[in-house]
């Protein structure tokens, strides 16, 4: 791989070209080899409970899914893209209204065809996660090429 800053820059452009990620204001904060961190700002349009102002779980799912996808694509063994096979989210607590939500995902195992992921999401209180996720994603390799 080339210089890490260039890689992050490229991945940022990729994430920002996804219309739904842009609609939610997602920002790629860090990228490793099979790991990613993506965050999104608090937004009144994403509120799920008007009484409390808490963000809807669905928006947290969208963040987790994007972050897991980015982690798969950053893995050296998976270059050509990925799709979600399944994703399970556990909601630990309501995200605090007004705070940014940060998701971190890592590929903890990868085969020729499937990547297994774990992810967590938190707000300003990093000690208590808002949600955790586990998922399986497809591994799509460039046609005819060796990875």
């Amino acid at each position: 791989m080339t210089d890490p800053d260039a890689k992050l820059q490229l991945a940022r452009q990729f994430i920002e070209a996804i219309p739904h990620s842009r609609a939610l204001g997602m920002r790629l904060d860090a990228l490793g080899e099979g790991a990613a961190e993506i965050s999104m700002p608090y937004d009144l349009r994403l509120v799920g409970d008007p009484r409390t102002g808490v963000i809807h779980g669905g928006a947290v799912s969208a963040l987790m899914d994007t972050c897991c996808g980015a982690a798969v694509m950053s893995h050296p063994g998976s270059a050509a893209g990925t799709a979600t096979i399944d994703l399970r989210i556990d909601y630990m607590r309501a995200a605090t209204p007004g705070q940014r939500i940060v998701a971190r995902a890592e590929v903890y195992h990868i085969t020729r065809t499937v990547a297994f992921l774990r992810a967590t999401a938190h707000d300003d209180d990093t000690a208590r996660p808002v949600a955790t996720a586990t998922g399986a994603f497809t591994v799509e390799r460039p046609k005819g090429g060796q990875v």
Partner: peptide
Amino acid sequence: IHGGVTAAFLEV
């Protein structure tokens, strides 16, 4: 469609 949108649609 974004996988997160699908998840959100189902959850809603």
